[in-house]
Design a protein around this nucleic acid. Structure first.
Lengths: 333, 333
DNA sequence: CCAACAACTGTGAGCGCTAACAACACCCTT
DNA sequence: AAGGGTGTTGTTAGCGCTCACAGTTGTTGG
């Protein structure tokens, strides 16, 4: 049987509360007593039962992170940073994939209310359907990424502005036929909408007329779907001068297609992505992208979350992070 | 204040135990009572407190997954599948990065003993230093990947055999100067040792004399380090006919270097990787690799873990998974 | 009609921990 | 010498849940 506070207390000749005081270190304990207790803890190999502590304190020290798909490089990098930052601050991270399924977001909300997690960092996909709703008593939640409604604290990058700047950068050497890959039909993700919008803003600035045929739809943002969409597109359209993919993952799929067709990049067509995932740097050719500090996303998200946990009442907070256009070989002329 | 079993019981006009029976569904409850209780649960928006349940039951329904670095594509894919499979079976997954730091593996062991997690899936890196030791009372643990000692249940792919087969495949069209990228000096990871060994086995089979200068060391298996190592190597060595990288990530770094030097792949040099990560398919050119079923790894690991949790006493179990050599453009002549 | 049984529901206790409070020793002030 | 800190430790209680067991009903067969 595992040792409990009682056992430790008995062995150290003190009360259970004193053992607890030693463990938690808030209420002062004299040196001698502390030593005795620590000795007893070592001898009995005592480990506190966190379920019991959680029950008593109403807090578990665990936060949940929900991402659409952990397997994608972007999500993986975000998860990496969140886990790291959380660990530094003593939080344990529970992970959940929502697979863009609102049901699973809802499950998480329930779990948050079941005292198993103290807070939730959520990267929603389609928010209309999202479990995060006005009016419902939310656990402390921080949203990651582009979201149209303002339902909870939030950390994001101004996608529209970034897409605009990227389009402008691609147009720099006189390119005018700039295609985008990743637009969605109907109600798409907020990211798709904003990036499309930024692209269109840039066209206005550049005095280029909007050409519907340069919007290449791609609902799911994976290399596979991007490759398929681009292949289909090239079968029936002339080659654009530049291709702005709404994520690096899609750009990697696109590069693979273009290369197989023997096209030279960036001479025949410039390519850019969005997210600055690690692999983009080693793409062939290295990928021009919208870059931002993912570790900052993690630490800001955690900051907002802990502040929210400390004070449920305050105003909603929104943090916008800087981005930069990183030009690499895929667009450098 | 949140509703408790008591509140639900009062409202439904039954005892707390009956509510518990309805929730857990093991002890039969009559239809009428069940309906009343479910009604009350809905009305009060009752959510059970999992900390309390965990305290009472001694189990939390949470397992932990520990990986060296979540940000790498391989780890991310493994994590993805484990989270998915665990979710299907009703497990919650806590995630931890060990960053190859044995201290963090040890922390996890402690947490397992603190009743916060029921079991642990661990992908260790250097096991000599690992927290998993003989003699120590382990929580239910399943090890992922190559490991020399047999300390716990384990799921792995026979790296040595796979490396041997890959080397043989690369040698097929008469290539003889086959380099490997990723060997380590001194005590390296078990994976590095086994893959090197498999390569050397193949050389013996092929009747090719071992050439020390074809072993390109690279301690950390990332695209960056691989690119650096290969760049340095090519500065002072002639170009090999083939390059077998010990991971796909390294291969992607290597491809980037080779491409920048204007080398044609596979004509000038064939390249292969290991792990079959998603991006390898979209590498330029698409990457020949050792492939295996990562979802099977996940489900086997979970199976071993749940079996171990059910019966702590049984013999150690080891599951070896199939692999296959997938030839893509980077080696196809 | 009653015993015997099944099917269901209630009672009491306690999992391990820590908050609030009480108690005590000890020192310093007045 | 009494009063009032100050610092440390003990006592009591209960967080919300479910187990073991006891109790209650309904159902069947003799």
């Amino acid at each position: 049987m595992r040792a409990t506070v009682k056992d430790v207390a008995r062995r150290a000749g003190v009360s259970p509360k004193t053992v607890s005081n030693v463990m938690n270190g808030i209420i002062p304990v004299s040196g001698a007593t502390r030593t005795k207790v620590e000795q007893a803890i070592l001898e009995l190999d005592y480990v506190p039962n966190l379920s019991a502590r959680g029950l008593r304190n109403g807090r578990s020290g665990v936060i949940a992170l929900a991402l659409p798909d952990l397997g994608t490089p972007y999500s993986a990098e975000i998860a990496h940073h969140i886990v790291e930052v959380a660990h530094e601050q003593g939080w344990i991270v529970q992970i959940e994939e929502t697979g863009s399924d609102p049901k699973r977001e809802r499950e998480l909300m329930v779990r948050a209310r079941s005292n198993l997690i103290d807070g939730l960092i959520l990267n929603p996909v389609v928010l209309d359907e999202s479990a995060v709703r006005v009016g419902v008593a939310l656990p402390p939640v921080v949203l990651l990424g582009e979201v149209t409604q303002s339902l909870a604290d939030r950390v994001f990058v101004d996608s529209a502005a970034a897409a605009r700047d990227m389009t402008l950068a691609l147009a720099q050497p006189g390119r005018r036929r700039i295609a985008v890959l990743g637009t969605t039909q109907g109600r798409g993700s907020a990211a798709a909408i904003q990036r499309t919008q930024g692209y269109e803003e840039a066209l206005v600035i550049l005095g280029i007329e909007r050409d519907e045929s340069l919007l290449i739809p791609c609902e799911k943002w994976t290399p596979q779907t991007a490759a398929d969409a681009l292949t289909a597109y090239l079968g029936s359209h002339p080659l654009p001068e530049a291709l702005f993919c709404f994520t690096d993952s899609m750009a990697i799929g696109a590069l693979s297609v273009l290369w197989k067709r023997g096209l030279r990049i960036p001479e025949d067509i410039a390519v850019a992505g969005f997210d600055d995932i690690a692999d983009g740097r080693y793409a062939v050719p290295s990928l021009t992208t919208v870059s931002f500090d993912k570790r900052a996303i993690a630490s800001e998200a955690l900051r907002l979350l802990t502040e929210r946990m400390a004070d449920r009442g305050h105003e909603q907070r929104v943090v916008s992070l800087h981005y930069s256009i990183v030009e690499r070989d895929s667009s450098r002329s």
